[in-house]
Amino acid sequence: MRGDRLNALLLILPATAFLLLWFVVPLCRLLALAFTGEAGGFESLWTLLSSNVYQRVLGNTMIVAVIVTLLTLVLAWPVAYVLTRLKGIGFMLMLYGVLFPFWISVLVRTFSWMLLLERNGPINRFLMGLGVTDQPLALLFNETGVLIGMTHVLLPYAVLPLFSAMNRIDRRLLQASDGLGAAPLDTFRRVYLPLSLPGLFGGGTFVFLLCLGFFITPALLGGANAMTLSMLISSFVTDRLAWSLAAAGSIILLAIVLVLMGLAMRLLPLDKGMFAK
């Protein structure tokens, strides 16, 4: 048995060494920069947390994440439900509709929205044609653009956990509830909804965490008018060479993500198979 153990350790050695050298050590070196700047100590973290500008960026990041999470869950609901009812080719087509966007670069998907949301783009022309608005709406380079783009990119992440939770609901429970005389709305509220909650929370947590660290889509669709934490970190590095501030921002972002993930794993009956079905 001891030989087996040694064998297993040897097998995981290359990946472990690689990740330590090219991922863990760089990460620790970056985070350490927060405490070794000119000011030293907790100065960079304090600067970041106490400044009005940075507080606004942090608040904006949170608000965007909350709204996008709610939007994706609302949109994911009917898709996940219908997926549980479809069979054969209809099921495959809808599932591929959810999976295909995963394969397309976030950059390409964001670029698409830049074309569509432009001042003279098709969506503005359509809205003006309908008479909804006289002047083109500002849909790009503000919060609206960010919300639309991020909802689009993150929606599949909400559909899959929701679908997997709904798919495991025993339909006989619903029939039993119906048979015992519950109104459809009662069956939904007291049986179906509670049973689909793990998927709803799982998908919601997942989308929320991805939102917090999102970079490409807010940077292109929101621009300087809708700064998020990830854009701030990037601008510290590329525009200001303020490495200790970038490190402090990274610590804050990483801490929020890890705490939320820890809470979610503890509190939610998360589907253990979500990561590997």
Partner: peptide, 25 residues
């Protein structure tokens, strides 16, 4: 523990990994 390590690049926000690896590179 090791699974946690191997999945870590998926969990850490990419902007943080990017800045970290960029610095060491």
């Amino acid at each position: 523990a090791m699974t946690g390590l191997f999945l870590a690049p998926m969990i850490v926000p990419v902007i943080v990994s990017a800045v970290a690896i960029y610095r060491t590179a």
